[in-house]
Write a protein that binds this DNA or RNA. Structure first.
Lengths: 306, 306
DNA sequence: GCTCCATTCTGCATTTCTGCCGAATGAGGT
DNA sequence: ACCTCATTCGGCAGAAATGCAGAATGGAGC
């Protein structure tokens, strides 16, 4: 035989051999069944050997194929070793990186993540700026930002949607015991309501609550979601909050499922120039992997898209 | 980093690391330089690591890249081992195969090849039918044929051109000493000429010689090129022969370089149905590899296409 | 200082690969 | 006996990878 034309065929060979079918292998590899079948066919053609028997029930290794499997596994083992080394290499990356977000997201997402990230990449120094102002990444004020709400618009940056951020109405558990819980928008009328101030007052969820409570006294106003959360925890009244925040407070409970129409999205914004830099990539990759967990948690409890 | 997306990137990585440039690697791999550059870029993007420094003089490994090289070489080693096993596996192929060709090609090409082939694939039984008749492969009279001349036409077969077969005029060395050597078509007039008979008389080269020698006695006629060769060796006169045959006779010498216009081609014909069968493939692959040597020898001495 | 050469990169055309869809085929369960 | 399910295979359209040609760059040799 000539030299192996495409080492990637071995990856497919292993997957098919293990799954026992091109379909199963395709699922495992995240590709189409046809692709697996074709790569096996290509490998067999290149080597002029029959590696599998085609059956209705799937692909079964021939004797020769089975003998080859062991060898292919050794190749795989070395590839895994290389991947491991690559990972180790990567953990030695160093550099400085400036991230920014608002207080709520910092508390719920970024800060917990940073703890893990520092473990994995001790030589990457991350400086976090927590502010309500949206720093201008394009001007070099920061490299990475996490933003909530509508899709951020800016030039010179790459924007990526992470997940949906459902909102709903929360109240303290002891508030619920004392005053009961509204189970629909109509029942909000009789309750004390915590409102927003400044830019916070403009948030869809906060407006929704104030409008639902039309005529009722707003007992507290705050320009910070964190503050509003604290007010709710203190049992002052109902507050509209992102589930990402409200669910993290053991003292709070949802009044009803996430409200359609008041949710936002979580966006990851990266300065275009910083995007390709290895240690920034490492940060982003880790962050995105970490956010997958947040996403899973939220989507599990979220309604459909609103 | 995620899992390695494409193991074949490692092959390119190795090639570039060794060649020191994407261009050199591309040559080694038989692909385009751009492809190498792009696969390295893809690998670096996937791993978010800089593996090479781009310079005008070429690609140079970074420190991290150099550390990875050793690992990649281990992968390669395992792939080579697998290739070896595959080859060994292949040598255990068994089966029967019928080949056919004419006497000249059998002597010059097929028989010498068969000796080597039997060593490599002891369990494949090859039956050779040497005949001037063109057996009908499509009818199952044989699986593989080697043919000389014009492109064979037939249905149900795959035809592949191996190389050009130059012809020229030969005479025995001692004939040359006794009678001199014609150095052009015009000088043939005074020499004794060996002609063909039957289908051999129709071959372009044989006709060319007889026409060049118009009026001169044809001292011998034979229906077999082998016979004509023997006659030439015996010093009877000049003979038109394919260089493939004439050059193999130490007792013969070329009168002049290959004559444009009288050459043919060597064709490999395979019965369509037999093409995919492993042991036939093994035979064909070996034969083609072997013929590359024949080709190199002939093309080295051949004129341009005629 | 000049040319020549090997190299990299970019934009475009083409080939190749991949995914998707539907049909066919058996096996297994009801 | 029939349905359902998992599987393979073929054709087709879109996507991705590849090759090609040209421009730019910088070093080596004359």
């Amino acid at each position: 035989m000539e030299r192996m034309r495409d080492w990637d065929d071995l990856r497919h060979f292993l997957a098919v051999a293990r799954a026992g079918s091109t379909l199963g292998a395709a699922r495992a590899l995240g590709v189409n069944q046809t692709t697996c079948a074709r790569r096996i066919a290509a490998l067999e053609a290149a080597t002029a050997m029959q590696l599998f028997e085609r059956r209705q029930a799937g692909y079964r290794l021939t004797e020769a194929g089975a003998r080859l499997l062991a060898l292919a596994e050794r190749v795989e083992q070395e590839v895994r070793a290389l991947e491991g080394a690559l990972e180790a290499e990567r953990r030695m990356l160093s550099g400085r990186l400036r991230a920014t977000t608002n207080e709520s997201i910092a508390n719920a997402v970024l800060t917990p993540f940073l703890a893990r990230f520092r473990e994995a990449y001790p030589r990457i120094r991350v400086e976090v700026t927590i502010t309500d102002r949206a720093l201008e990444l394009a001007r070099g004020e920061a490299d990475v930002a996490l933003r909530a709400g509508r899709q951020p618009e800016a030039v010179g940056v790459a924007v990526r949607r992470i997940c949906h951020l459902p909102w709903t109405i929360y109240c303290a558990r002891d508030y619920a015991m004392r005053h009961g819980v509204p189970t629909s928008r109509a029942e909000i009328g009789g309750h004390a309501v915590i409102g927003g101030e400044g830019s916070v007052a403009k948030i869809a969820g906060v407006r929704w609550l104030e409008e639902a409570a039309a005529g009722v006294e707003v007992v507290s106003r705050s320009g910070s979601l964190t503050n509003m959360t604290a007010a709710a925890v203190a049992g002052i009244g109902l507050a509209a909050l992102p589930c990402m925040i409200g669910d993290r407070e053991p003292a709070l409970q949802r009044c009803f499922p996430p409200v359609p129409g008041i949710g936002g999205d979580l966006w990851l914004v990266v300065r275009e120039e910083a995007r390709g830099v290895p240690h920034v990539r490492a940060f982003l990759d880790s962050l995105v992997a970490d956010l997958a967990a947040v996403r899973a948690m939220l989507e599990g409890t979220a309604p459909g898209r609103d």
